[in-house]
Design a binder for these strands. Structure first.
Lengths: 233, 233
DNA sequence: TCACATTTGTCCGTATGTATC
DNA sequence: AGATACATACGGACAAATGTG
């Protein structure tokens, strides 16, 4: 009755194409291969890894879907290192939604938590440039509204800018994920001028509170804003 | 001057394997293919889609990496519909982290926010089964400590169980990601019996506060615990 | 224990499509 | 327009894994 249950499985997949993709992926993460670098063509890769072309192709497919490379056909083409992970991330998140793994309620609850944390840190850490960017964002949004256009893009951007102002790259990534989900939820609805205008006004008030460092007021405003957005789904 | 801008372009992939994977994926999302259903072997799929085996294989690779199917070799094996999307999601998020060089400080700050939110929801939503699982987890950890072994695995599991008790699948995904990063940070250090023991004791106190629904006390305990863990890096 | 059938994993050769020069 | 270099795709073959009798 020995406890030989191998709990940790740092071992790699035994399939050859997994080892190949892992090795290339490691080189990219370590920075040996940088964005824009061109990988050898499939045949050459096969020789270097001592595997067949089919194996290389499946490895490239994995790297492509994981957002580490892109592949182009034709002369001068081939696999190129390019980071598209966040795009692939939103694709997968959409899948999770379509498979009903995430509900709107769960999403809103999580969003509230993370956006509040971002706001809290942004109040402490935002520098002049961040404030300027946020002000410019609102000006852009109001300009669109004045021309009876919907300010969807700037409204999404506002939260990204806020995340950047928090000076925590973890929040930036989490916020991007939230934005992706939000975007998917919204894409099913037709854009609404009224909702868009309300969002811009909420952002404006929020920024004012941030500049004045009125923390509680800002958090309350954010609460109302997120819950209002939730209703618009 | 007709508006022939094709707005609905769900299928942009020219490549054959993308069309094949999209079709199978659609069948799964629509519910025509359900979890546990066995797909035909590669050769048979090739005949049905009128493409070669290589094309089928690349399509299956995509579905596998996207978390829609698993594939097993040998007699009675083959592709089987199985939802592992959330696992694939945290894998991708981890990739995003590794490409961005997150600092320990940023990670700890984000961890604190998310774990607190999880704790808050867990206090409200944990059912009897969740509490039982958490108690069993601590018992397992203490048993290991009594035999002078390090309780790393149960200690990681504790936070996963807590996330599950929050009844929010978004938190489950985020927590899994945090665990993966945490694990990565820890892997550079040799495991420490003292630290492990302290964590178990912290978990025990925390669970006690959760059961008694002492919210503030629980959050304070979590604060101390996470910051203590941060020092161990 | 030993074949045996089934299915994925891998390799090779070849042909076609595609983008650049 | 033609040559070149590359991915894309097909078909056949054998190896490896895995459960059955």
């Amino acid at each position: 009755m020995s406890v030989d249950k191998a709990i940790f499985t740092p071992v790699k997949g035994k399939r050859a194409f997994e080892e190949v993709s892992s090795k290339i992926k490691a080189l990219i993460i370590e920075g040996v291969l940088k964005s824009g670098d061109k990988l050898p063509p499939e045949g050459e890769l096969g020789k270097q890894f001592n595997v067949g072309r089919q194996t290389i192709r499946e490895a490239l497919r994995i790297l492509e879907l994981s957002g580490f490379i892109t592949v182009q056909q034709g002369f001068g083409g081939g696999p190129v290192v390019k980071n598209t992970i966040s795009r692939k991330l939103s694709d997968l998140i959409l899948d999770a939604f379509q498979m009903k793994e995430i509900s709107v309620e769960e999403f809103t609850a999580a969003r509230l938590v993370i956006e509040k944390a971002i706001l809290n840190d942004a109040i402490d850490n935002a520098d002049d440039q961040d404030i300027e960017d946020l002000q410019e964002n609102i000006a852009k949004a109001k300009d669109l509204l004045a021309r009876k256009q919907i300010a969807t893009d700037p409204n999404f951007e506002f939260h990204s800018l806020l995340a950047r102002a928090s000076k925590n790259s973890v929040f930036v990534i989490l916020e991007r994920t939230i934005n992706a989900i939000h975007h998917k939820l919204r894409s099913q609805k037709t854009a609404d001028f009224k909702t868009s205008k309300a969002a811009v006004l909420a952002h404006e008030k929020l920024l004012d509170a941030i500049i004045k460092k009125e923390r509680e007021k800002a958090i309350n405003l954010l609460d109302q804003h997120v819950l209002a957005v939730r209703k618009s789904y």
